[in-house]
Amino acid sequence: MSSCAARPMVGAVVLTMNDRPDEFPRAVASLLAQEGIDLDVIVVGNGCQPEQVPDGVRTVALPENAGIPEGRNAGAAGVGGDYLFFFDNDAHLPDTDTLARLVSEFRRDSQLAYVQPRISDPATGVTLRRWVPRLRASDPARPGVVTVMAEGAVMIRRDAYDRAGGWPGHFFLFHEGVELAWRLWDLGCTGRYVPDIVVHHPATDPARHDTFYRLNARNRVWVARRNLPFSLVPLNLATWCLITLWRIRDRQALRVTLAGFREGLAGAHGPRTSMSWRTVIRLTRAGRPPIF
C-alpha cells in the first residue's frame, strides 16, 4: 500500500454567515495548508450562500440560519474521513501539522472519541477559562482526560460521532458540546485535552450574543433532562441555579436567565436517553461529576 493511501482522512467543517470577510479566508487557508493528512473541507452557509470560498472546497447553503450545532451536522453529513474537525470561522491554525498531531492522539488510544487542542488568543496568548474543558481551569497548560469540550476547535472520531447521534441540532447555540461529550462517554469512550497543540481564536465574550442568557439557561436544562438519570436532574439544576445567582449581578440578565430556565423546564428538549450509572461513575472519577 502506498504511503499516500495510508494517510488519515480528516473531514473539516466550517460555518459561515458571510460576516467575517477577514477571518473566514484565513481560517480556511490555515486548514488547506495542513500537511500529513488527506483533507475534505466543507463550508456550510447558515442561511446564506457561502462567499470567499477557495476553488475545490465544497459548500452547503442552508435556507435559513439553523444554528451552530445543526449547521455542523449538515457539514458532517457532507464530508468523508475517519475523523471530523469542527472549526470556528474566526479561528486559525498557526502550524501546518496541527491536524496530523490531533490524529496521532487517536492512534495511541482506541477509546478516545474526541481531542481538544488548547485555544488561545493570537494577540495575547490568553486561554479563557471557558476554553479549558475541566472544572479546575486555572492552568490551561495541564493536559489530561476531560469530560466536556470546547466546540469551536475539536476533532472527533467519525464512528463515535455517528453512534452518538451528532450534535443536538435544536439547541441552536450553547452547551451542545456538553451534550455530545456526555453521549460519547456513555458509549464507553473518553476525551482528551492536549494543550501543547494550539489553535488561535480571538478571546470574545459569549454574552455578546443577544440570546446568550436565555439559550444558555434553556440548554443547560435540556442537557440535564435529556441525559441524566432522573434523580440527578434536580441536583444538577439546583447546583447551576446557585452558581448562576452568585455570578450574575445584572438584574436584566438574571431575569432573562430565569426566563430561559423556565423555558427549558417547559419541554421541547427532545428525546431522552439517560446515561448509565456506570457513566456517572466514570465521569466522576475523571474529575467532573455530572451535577456540575
Rank of each mutant, 00 (worst) to 15 (best):
M1K: 14
S2P: 10
A5K: 11
A6M: 07
P8L: 07
P8E: 08
P8M: 06
A12F: 02
A12I: 00
N18H: 08
D19C: 07
R20S: 12
P21R: 15
P21Q: 14
P21A: 15
E23K: 12
A29G: 06
E35A: 11
V44Y: 00
G47Y: 05
G47A: 07
Q49G: 07
P50F: 02
D55R: 14
R58Y: 01
A66Q: 08
G75F: 03
A76E: 13
N89H: 15
T96W: 05
T96H: 13
L99R: 03
L99T: 02
L102A: 04
Q111D: 10
Q116P: 04
P122E: 04
A123M: 06
T124S: 15
T127P: 09
T127M: 09
L135Q: 11
S138R: 12
D139Q: 08
P140S: 05
A141G: 09
V145D: 12
V145S: 13
V148L: 01
A153F: 00
V154H: 00
I156T: 14
R157Y: 05
D159E: 10
G169A: 10
F171V: 09
L173C: 12
R192H: 14
V198P: 02
V199E: 00
A203C: 06
A203M: 08
T204M: 14
P206S: 12
A207N: 10
F212V: 05
F212W: 15
Y213A: 13
Y213C: 02
L215Q: 15
N219G: 13
R220N: 14
R220T: 15
A224I: 03
N227G: 09
V233Y: 11
V233F: 11
N236T: 04
C241F: 08
T244G: 06
T244R: 13
W246Q: 14
I248S: 03
R249F: 03
R249A: 07
R251L: 14
R251C: 09
L254A: 07
R255M: 03
L258V: 12
F261H: 12
G267Y: 08
R272F: 04
R272Y: 07
W277H: 14
I281G: 01
A286C: 06
G287W: 02
G287K: 03
F292W: 13
